[in-house]
Amino acid sequence: MQRNQTPVIEFILEGLPNTKELPSLFFLLFHLLTLLGNALTLLTVLCDPRLHALPMYCFLGHLSFLDTCLSSVTVPKILAGLAGPGGRTISFGGCAVQLYTFHFLASTECFLYTLMAYDRFLAVCHPLRYTVVMSRRACVGLAASTWLTGSLHAAIQATLTFRLPYCGPSRVEYFFCDIPAVLKLACADTAANQAVILANVGAVGAGCFLLICVSYAYIVSTILKIRTAQGRLRAFSTCSAHLSLVLLFYGPPVLLYLHPSSSHASDWAVAMFYVFTPLLNPSIYTLRNKELKKALRRLAYGQARSQNGTNG
């Protein structure tokens, strides 16, 4: 069927299915809680000298910032779509920026999880070398490399997607501009693009996940060699929070990219990933990390003393 040859200047997002009776307050509440939880974690790491000097908490601060931004890329557009049909419109440039930003943040977080697994591997398997290998300079350099690599990866995805002509239709069958949904609207053969893009995304995701699995294989092997049950429990507790977040992070995207044709179930699964996972991350780390809980209490106590001194 011949498509209209007029270049598309804006897209219309379908939004989430079956949300007509769902109040926007539902998503707004969880988005605000996500921002608050991650901001509190980041503030605690930055303000407590005992934490921001340790690599694990340095990476946790980056993770909290990434979760805040990743949630802000998609959830506001969900809220706008729930508010009315006008909120579902997005310009061509805005769509490109959203796609790039999403893949930039998501891939950076993927690389960061891999780096955190390596950090746990060194801490458990090579504790005597840990402080030497994970020096402050090395920690900053490794964290910066995740952002740089994520930026390059996202640039490749956005370039391959938007170098194609778009001349209608303009209705994106998704709740934000992502690669599988946008490619369906291109006025050209997208078979090669889909193969290259999905292979690229798959290689990054599978490569990072494989490295994480290898790290934890060594970690588990080392933990099992610890003679006392208390020692094994202490060693495993340092990794359990990170392992929980990895499973939450990889589940929904696998569902999406293994079934790019999409369905209502996969739409909702991925939407809940963007809404709930960034909210769960600070909760999981706070509940399972004694040092972070102590730092939160110190921060709260310090604020209370400062307030009392001001009132006095």
Score class of each variant (00 low, 15 high):
residue 248 L to C: 06
residue 298 R to S: 12
residue 126 H to K: 07
residue 160 L to H: 04
residue 61 G to R: 14
residue 172 V to A: 09
residue 310 T to I: 02
residue 264 H to A: 13
residue 48 D to T: 07
residue 132 V to W: 04
residue 34 T to Q: 12
residue 82 L to T: 13
residue 291 E to M: 13
residue 165 P to E: 03
residue 67 D to P: 03
residue 245 L to I: 06
residue 105 L to H: 00
residue 40 L to S: 14
residue 233 L to T: 12
residue 42 L to A: 15
residue 176 F to K: 03
residue 36 L to Y: 11
residue 251 G to F: 06
residue 105 L to G: 01
residue 78 I to Q: 05
residue 279 L to I: 04
residue 270 V to Q: 07
residue 198 L to Q: 10
residue 201 V to P: 09
residue 287 L to F: 11
residue 81 G to C: 13
residue 29 L to E: 00
residue 311 N to C: 13
residue 57 Y to I: 10
residue 145 S to A: 06
residue 300 A to S: 06
residue 52 H to K: 12
residue 236 F to S: 10
residue 73 V to H: 07
residue 99 L to G: 15
residue 242 H to F: 11
residue 210 L to T: 09
residue 277 T to S: 09
residue 220 V to I: 09
residue 280 L to M: 09
residue 205 G to Y: 12
residue 246 V to F: 03
residue 252 P to A: 13
residue 30 F to P: 09
residue 178 D to P: 06
residue 262 S to Q: 11
residue 292 L to D: 03
residue 127 P to H: 03
residue 261 S to F: 04
residue 155 A to W: 11
residue 44 T to P: 07
residue 75 V to S: 08
residue 63 L to K: 00
residue 21 E to F: 15
residue 213 C to F: 06
residue 270 V to P: 04
residue 222 T to L: 00
residue 130 Y to T: 05
residue 104 F to Y: 06
